[in-house]
Amino acid sequence: MATMKLQVISPDAVVYEADIAMLVADATSGPIGILPMHLPMITGILPCAMRLKMEDGTQQYLAVAGGFMEVQRDKITVLASCAERPEQIDRNRAEQSLARAKERIKTFQRGTKEAESIDIKRAELSLQRALARLKSMEKI
């Protein structure tokens, strides 16, 4: 089976590097699946659990916190502000931040006084990140 190289880079490290057969991620314009020999493409990606299909048919997940993806025919480079392999994720922390983000969004929606101090965009992003992490763990 044809494969392509995947490189996931965060500001602090090259998080992941391997040959894969397919990549599924959430692009800014919707979920997108990429197979080898895809046309060169650049797109933004949202916080999501990226699904990697390996050469032998097994699947892996990577949690990414939004960024960019550059696709070349035989290589994909993902630039994410944060990227983690499932085994690197602290489940407690992710769950806590999920709960916190939910709480903040709820407060915002109630529209009380406290709501004004909440950055709803930030809360939603943090919710998505937490979800991406948890999702990538559950699917192993």
Partner: peptide
Amino acid sequence: YIFEPNAEEV
């Protein structure tokens, strides 16, 4: 490159 959705947005 193809830009998804377009170069401006990217």
